[in-house]
């Protein structure tokens, strides 16, 4: 790898006729694991196809592992791809399929079969790998897809909705497999619209919508972008109604509710339009009014909230 960057996207635009798939996308990512987040139709799969060289950008340049990915055999040896669609041969067994794809990397027949069997065992398909793929459940097919992407030991893996169709146990197992794989120092780009799937693997992500990059970085870095954006906050307090009154007087909250906890104590749940302002004034306000506060937390500090907030900013709703 001649570049220090895993991925370099320089003003990349991809048009399908008049439809924009990716719009003026810029990013420089160092080796590591990244989540590609976005709603359906955001351009995640288009971006992945640009990164693996299956699509050519209408404008801009794409470099992955320091190389142009298009028709690049040396590059293909280093990457693995698990597409979002199935596209598996129904009459072929899982073992034969993975063996064939390994042979296309130049591995001879016998070692390829042995390696394929090992890889299928890794994804929990040992008992079913000699059955035709047509007899597999959707979850089993997902496991096969994951196995074929990792079998030739690439250094960079592209996964498009890899947990789709997996049951909770399967998701956990595959998450563990991928975490082990990342732990070996490999890089990963995982596209999904389900946030907790990505959170289980990495806290670095790119959030895209409408083919544009909305934000990138860790969850905390992106949270800083939301300093003056709406947020929900929970405060466990001895005098919830007085706290609510003070907050309303100072126009720090637009809505407040008080909830009684089952084990005693009250929680003030408030919604603010300017989270940053509230966070900076809250300590002083508590001290001066003599409230006893046992806990303050953001009620919505998950990636889902972050995602929703960024989308609202992008759409001009905030």
């Amino acid at each position: 790898m001649t570049s220090e960057y895993l991925i370099e996207l320089d003003h990349v635009t991809k048009l399908y006729g008049t439809v924009i798939g990716v719009n003026d996308f810029n990013a420089q990512l160092k080796p590591g694991a990244y989540g590609l987040l976005g709603p359906n139709g955001a351009g995640k799969s288009t971006l992945l196809n640009l990164l693996i060289g299956q699509l050519v950008p209408t404008r801009g340049t794409v470099r992955v592992l320091g190389q142009s990915p298009r028709n690049n055999s040396a590059f293909m040896k280093k990457i693995g791809f698990c597409p979002g669609f199935e596209g598996l041969y129904a009459t072929t067994t899982g073992l034969d399929w993975v063996t064939l794809l390994l042979q296309l990397h130049g591995v001879r027949s016998r070692p390829a079969r042995a390696r394929a069997a090992d890889c299928l065992a890794l994804v929990g398909m040992s008992n079913d790998m000699n059955r035709p793929i047509a007899t597999y459940s959707r979850g089993m097919r997902q496991r096969i897809k994951l196995a074929q992407s990792m079998a030739h030991e690439p250094t960079l893996l592209f996964l498009d909705e890899p947990f789709s169709g997996l049951d909770p146990v399967g998701r956990t197992e595959m998450t563990n497999v991928l975490n082990d794989w990342i732990g070996l120092g490999n890089s990963l780009i995982i596209a999904s619209h389900v946030l907790h799937e990505i959170e289980a693997l990495t806290d670095s992500f790119l959030l895209i919508c409408g083919g544009r990059l909305l934000a990138s970085g860790t969850a905390s870095e992106v949270n800083e972008l939301l300093f003056d954006s709406p947020s929900e906050i929970e405060v466990d307090c001895s005098e919830p109604y007085r706290l609510a009154s003070v907050l309303m007087d100072r126009e720090l909250a637009v809505s407040i509710s008080v909830e009684q906890k089952s084990h005693g104590g009250d929680t003030v749940r408030l919604r603010t339009l300017r989270a940053g302002q509230l966070w900076s004034q809250l300590p002083d306000l508590i001290t001066r009014n003599g409230f006893t506060v046992t806990r303050v937390r953001s009620a919505d500090d998950s990636l889902q909230t972050l995602f929703n907030s960024l989308l609202k900013i992008h759409r001009g709703e905030i």
């Binding site: 299956q54 293909m76 990457i79 597409p83 296309l104 130049g106």
Partner: peptide
């Protein structure tokens, strides 16, 4: 849709 699996091989 089996094209891509083969297209991403050397």
């Amino acid at each position: 849709h089996s094209w891509t699996y083969l297209a991403v091989r050397p």
